[in-house]
Design a protein around this nucleic acid. Structure first.
Lengths: 241, 241
DNA sequence: TTCGGTTTGTTCTCTCGTTCACAAACTCTT
DNA sequence: AAGAGTTTGTGAACGAGAGAACAAACCGAA
């Protein structure tokens, strides 16, 4: 019962707009990078094994991931690097350009503004914004910092669909609300705060301190497994205050 | 079969060193932050519902997560904020200090060096390192940039167990190898590269460009679902070169 | 003490993700 | 043309995580 039936009546080889599992979506950019690297080394064809080791996953997972996009490989041969690269880019949406605003130009915002990985992958920074009047006007690269009140105008004029929040935690929710109100549909949050958004808005968060704490947990496990069941501060369990 | 038997012969209320699911470990720092915030607002006791909404998860998940640590709540009452906070901190390993080295002091490394979220959570930056001789000696805060050849000494003298890689992609694997060789057990990688490490070393990666690409995928889905099944570059499927 | 109200800890079920294993499909050699 | 060797695509088994639901445990009032 393995081969025979095509199972669904789809046209096969082109499952347009099919829902790709979230875990797979998160790996596609990694595959894309691996393919780009191979292409730069003049590799024309790669097997799932080659690709998988370049991407740091196992080959079965890679094949299954790719199978959600369509059947772009050739049995007995492998994948054409350029062709597959284009197909993944198209699925992710990198064949078009995306406009991004960065809000909060502190240390991190500064670094993000200078980050070259944006432009090279089709993400164009439309504006750098900050609420601090002292910073407004300062130039970073060829962009000047603008006041955050310009948000509506910028989003409208540059068709911004992605907002990056690099403010302190206290300001994050307010900035988030303004982004949503201005019509931004996706938000990348670097502030250590939980954001509340309407259901149609996507939020992803990047938190350095959380990553370090996760590492610390595992590190603690490695060095002597004794977490010593100490009691801690005053009260035990719940109680009055 | 709910109440009676204790299921395991453990002492209960103190499941020391039990294996906590990875997904739970990743959320503990969020709970910790929520608890800290509550404590600052002089909240002494909080229910799972309160905590869950502060952390942005649902209450059932939160209770299940906490149950892996032990039974620190009181039925009919909730959790004592300070007590629970201490217990989570202890489990993650934040009751001790951790030494960190940051390698690669470009835009991002600079921002990381100035990031205050490290020190406030028990992570102490022991050294800033860079391979560029022109940068060595430059001071950031009260730390001077040192050459990367000092790695072994620094790791030994300051008991560094966590390394942060903020170099360009091309240098990342080399730096990683040197960190591992020097005895660093956990690595936080900001470089857009896949790192290969021995099994006893933990690696977590943070990749801005990948996060943006994931957002772009979802954004594309929202604006008109047509991905137009275009063919792409030259060849179709696999083929010669 | 007993009863009603509240909240935790845990079991059960369901969904999602990973891995294995293998037939189908392709190339190359003889 | 046929057979040997590769490599993909996917069915099926397995495992981990999410969410609903509920009994057990606690508090406070009468």
């Amino acid at each position: 019962m393995t081969g025979g039936s095509r199972k669904t009546g789809r046209s096969d080889d082109e499952r347009v707009g099919r829902d790709i599992p979230e875990a797979t979506v998160a790996r596609l950019p990694i595959y894309l990078r691996a393919l780009t690297s191979l292409a730069e080394h003049d590799v024309g064809t790669a097997s799932s094994e080659d690709l998988a080791s370049a991407a740091g996953v196992n080959s079965a997972k890679l094949r299954k991931d790719l199978s959600y996009l369509g059947t772009y490989g050739t049995r007995g041969v492998g994948y054409d690097v350029d062709y597959l690269r284009y197909q993944i880019a198209r699925q992710i949406g990198l064949t078009q350009d995306w406009s991004v605003v960065i809000v909060g130009i502190g240390n991190l915002g500064h670094a993000l503004a200078n980050y070259s990985g944006f432009a090279t992958r089709g993400f164009q920074v439309a504006a750098l914004m900050d609420s601090d009047p002292a910073r407004v006007g300062e130039k970073i690269g060829d962009l000047a910092i603008t006041p955050i009140d310009d948000l509506d105008r910028v989003v409208r004029e540059s068709s911004v669909s992605i907002g990056v929040i690099a403010t302190p935690a206290a300001a994050a929710q307010d900035v988030c609300d303004r982004l949503v109100l201005a019509g931004v549909g996706s938000i990348l949050n670097f502030a250590p705060a939980v954001l509340t958004v309407p259901p149609h808005v996507d939020v992803r968060k990047v938190d350095l301190s959380i990553e370090l704490q996760i590492l610390a947990y595992h590190e603690q496990r490695k060095n002597g497994l004794s977490v010593l069941p100490g009691a801690g501060p005053g009260v035990a369990k719940a109680g009055a205050r």
